[in-house]
Computed example of a mutant assay.
Amino acid sequence: MQAELASPTRTELDKTLNTFATLQDQLLEMGEGLIRALPDMAIAFVILIVTWIVAKFAVRIADKIIGKTEMRPSLKNLVDTFVKLAIWLVGLMIALTVIMPGLTPASLIAGLGIGAVAIGFAFQDIFENFLAGVLIMLREKMRIGDVIECDGITGKVEHITLRETYVRKLSGEVTLVPNSMLFKNPVEILTDKVERRHEVLAGVSYDTDLDQAADVIRTAVESVDEVLTKKGIDVFACEFNSSSVDFKVRWWAGSKPRDGHESRDKVIRAIKRGLDDAGIEIPFPYVTHTFKEAVPLGGKSDS
């Protein structure tokens, strides 16, 4: 009875010992393989260091060559990025073939192609912004330093990367805008030119001589230093308002938002001063009440 109980215990012990022996052999084999691979790993590590050095010097050389041209800063960043990317791809392929000798460049490229499809589906938004960033850098418009307006965001372009664009709002905050948003939606570039047309409405009373009022307004606008008189000044009677005849006054000044605010401030002040000096009323809204029956202005008291 005791022998029958001891026999299964010995069998389980033998199995356990065999498992440990197999595991030990596998660990020893992995350790020996790792030791044999150490020289190749060291060579691959050296290749990566050389790749980093070569990429760094290649970017400097590219900067020197580009510096002699009038290339935009955003396009310069794009060239630097592609130079580094190309060198690192070559360096990584060489390092992988050193570690895994059976891996050929053809099989590596094929594997990268299959992996790129899988990664493309998984990171569709990232690649969309990447391609949009490349196209934004390639196009001539929207340079760094421009003030733009897109989808309710107004600000100054500070930096363009392959993923996003840094837009500094006029109130001081910075907004990280995905490149796909700037590529898909209409973008208004406020500072594409150094000059921009501004406008304001000026109203005069109905009993005013409109020709005289137009001359007074034009003279007032011409007196403002910030106004570019060579570009012309427009004074158009545009609307019969509830209590005034409105003129649309248009002039040219600097395209920056600050330039627009300053010129508009001085133009409004000049128009107000000119109309006051000419005795022309700038009416404010008023209401006329009409009654069916006459309303007595005074009456006898009940006492």
Rank of each mutant, 00 (worst) to 15 (best):
Q2Y: 06
A3L: 07
E4S: 09
S7A: 11
T9E: 02
L13P: 00
L13N: 03
N18Q: 08
Q24K: 09
D25S: 13
E29T: 10
L34P: 00
I35S: 10
I35C: 02
A37G: 03
L38G: 06
P39L: 02
M41L: 13
I43T: 09
V46T: 10
V46F: 12
V46D: 00
L48D: 02
I49Y: 03
I49W: 06
V50A: 13
V50Y: 04
T51M: 01
W52G: 14
I53N: 05
F57I: 08
F57T: 08
V59M: 13
V59H: 05
E70G: 14
L75E: 15
L75C: 12
N77K: 13
F82N: 10
F82S: 09
I87W: 10
W88R: 14
W88I: 15
V90K: 05
G91C: 04
T97W: 07
V98C: 05
P105K: 12
A106G: 12
A116R: 07
V117C: 11
V117Q: 09
I119W: 11
A122P: 01
F123R: 15
F123C: 07
F127S: 09
F127Q: 08
L138C: 12
L138G: 08
E140R: 15
M142I: 12
I144W: 04
G145H: 02
G145E: 02
V147S: 00
I148H: 07
E149A: 09
G155M: 04
V157Q: 05
H159D: 10
L170N: 01
T175D: 04
L176K: 14
L176Q: 03
P178Q: 02
N179I: 00
N179M: 06
F183Y: 12
P186F: 01
T191W: 01
V194C: 00
V200P: 02
L201R: 13
V204G: 04
Y206R: 14
T208Y: 00
D209N: 15
D215K: 14
S223T: 05
S223M: 05
E226H: 14
L228C: 10
L228D: 15
K230G: 11
I233P: 12
D234P: 08
V235C: 10
F236L: 15
C238P: 04
S242G: 12
V245Q: 14
V245A: 12
A253E: 01
S255P: 05
H261E: 02
E262D: 13
S263F: 04
V267R: 07
R273T: 11
D276I: 10
D277P: 06
D277Y: 12
I280M: 08
F284C: 01
P285R: 13
T290Y: 14
F291A: 11
